[in-house]
């Protein structure tokens, strides 16, 4: 890609190193131009590595923090079937976190470091998980809207130029489809249930709709990194493009639910052939991202506590493994 120059190459390289860098860059540019895949041992620009590491680790953190609002309802799920489904779903999310951390590790950072960054508050995760899941219907709305938005974001990532990320996303998207469907089913059951259940469902949709739309990120004119990510074939569609498509899908699906979207401005623009939505509160988005959401402190503290409480277990496992290896060596 022409946009990829040698800016990232430090000046003090020897001529041989410089030559290797140039060859690497050339290879990288060709792979990107061919829309093919970069693999962990391939040369890549430092900025590409950094961008991916940030994106993949943030994605992994989102899966892990995202377990919390749903785990909040495991012990109170209103039927045993729903309890089983919810447990399996949250378990899937731990699995997604695991393979995303693994994908990120191929870029040269250890999972422990990423975890440290998360619990130190240095790393970001999807801001939507800083909203509380206060009723059972939130399990439906999170599945339908939040996982639905996540899928729209993530399906194109299956074609991301970085191989390990794209491949991890294939499996994640398969499971996310199922999650979205189960969320829809929860809402469908509620909206066809008692008046109190239907009200619970509508209330949850009302609360999760706007935060879900904001999951696609800031409007295009306010998303400076998007261009570079698209040039690198990491990102395939712009934030607004994805958001518009998502709205179009929700408009149809909400009818089947017998519920409404809390947005009187949703409409299909015949000229642009795109779905449009009402204004979103980007000030709130930034505030929540900056730590002012209702649950930011709680989410981090819970992760920190699990990590701290588990320290002795991890130490024991490491020590036991060391002793076993020693025994084997002696024998």
């Amino acid at each position: 890609m022409a946009t990829q120059n040698l800016q990232s190459v430090p000046a003090e390289l020897s001529p041989e190193e410089l030559e290797a860098e140039r060859a690497g860059q050339k290879y990288f540019d060709r792979i990107i131009a061919e829309d093919s895949r970069i693999e962990p041992r391939d040369w890549m620009p430092a900025a590409y590595r950094k961008t991916l590491l940030r994106q993949i680790s943030q994605h992994a953190h989102s899966e892990i923090i995202g377990m919390q609002p749903e785990a909040n309802w495991i012990t109170r799920a209103p039927s045993l079937k729903r309890k089983a489904i919810l447990m399996a779903k949250v378990q899937d999310e731990a699995g997604h976190g695991l393979y995303l951390y693994s994908a990120a590790e191929t870029l040269g950072q250890h999972r422990d470091q990423m975890t440290e960054d998360l619990i130190a508050g240095k790393a970001r995760y999807s801001s939507i998980f800083n909203y509380p899941a206060v009723t059972w219907a939130d399990m439906g709305a999170i599945g339908w809207l939040v996982d639905g938005a996540a899928i729209c974001n993530q399906v194109p990532l299956c074609r991301a130029s970085y191989g390990p990320y794209g491949r991890a996303m294939v499996r994640i998207c398969k499971e996310e489809s199922f999650h979205q469907r189960q969320g829809f089913e929860i809402l469908l059951e509620l909206s066809h249930g008692t008046p109190a259940q239907k009200q619970m469902a509508q209330d949850a949709v009302n609360r999760w709709y706007a935060p879900a739309l904001m999951m696609f990120g800031p409007p295009d004119e306010d998303s400076p990194n998007s261009k570079q990510s698209m040039a690198w074939n990491i990102k395939r569609f712009s934030n607004d493009e994805l958001r518009s498509r998502f709205v179009g899908m929700m408009v149809e699906q909400v009818k089947v639910l017998g519920l409404t979207l809390p947005d009187p401005d949703v409409r299909f623009n015949e000229e642009t052939k795109k779905w449009e939505h009402g204004p979103l509160d980007w000030e709130e988005f930034k505030a929540v991202l900056a730590g002012h959401g209702p649950c930011n402190a709680q989410r981090l503290e819970r992760r920190r506590q699990a990590h701290d409480d588990g320290a002795w277990v991890r130490e024991a496992a490491a020590e036991y493994a060391r002793k076993q290896a020693e025994k084997e060596y002696a024998a």
């Binding site: 639905g148 194109p156 994640i172």
Partner: peptide
Amino acid sequence: EGHGDISV
């Protein structure tokens, strides 16, 4: 695209 969907 073969990998996931949000059909219900």
